[in-house]
Amino acid sequence: MSQTEATELLAAVQGFLRQSVLPQLEGFDAYTTRVAANSLAIVTREIAARGTLDALDHAAAARWLPLSPATEQPARALGLALRDGSLQPDADLVSYLRQRTLRQMAIDNPRYSAFKQARQRWPEIAALASEQGSRA
């Protein structure tokens, strides 16, 4: 077997916090410990999903900003183009923004009330956003 994977370490620390530490705490420290364990869960989900989300953003920048030089921050480039008015939101751009936000929400807080609501309202985009690969 190889060394412990990063995701295994994250799972182990989460288990330690929730099962060993949390029962001994109360009040503000218990609350903060829950926030700590939850933060590790976010990191775990991000490790699995970050690559797909980045690829989606790069594909969007290539599509809507074809004349701009390649950038490490494609979402920022799109935001700045919306800011100066050189990019106007069309239906496809809005679909991309929905898909990227659903993917980000699946990492950050899949229990947020609007996540369920959005997937019901936009089932086709939700299906795209749950695929491993990305298609804008």
Binding site: T32, V35, A36, N38, S39, I42, P89, V94, L97, R98, T101, L102, Q104, M105, I107, D108, N109, Y112, A114, F115, Q117, A118, R121
Partner: peptide
């Protein structure tokens, strides 16, 4: 940690905004 963790709630505002602006853009 509280501040760092709240900073990860940006996507809540983004999803709320996209739902609110659905059909109004």
């Amino acid at each position: 940690l509280e501040r760092a963790a709240v900073g990860r709630r940006v996507s809540e505002s983004e999803l709320d905004l996209l739902l609110l602006l659905d059909g109004k853009l």
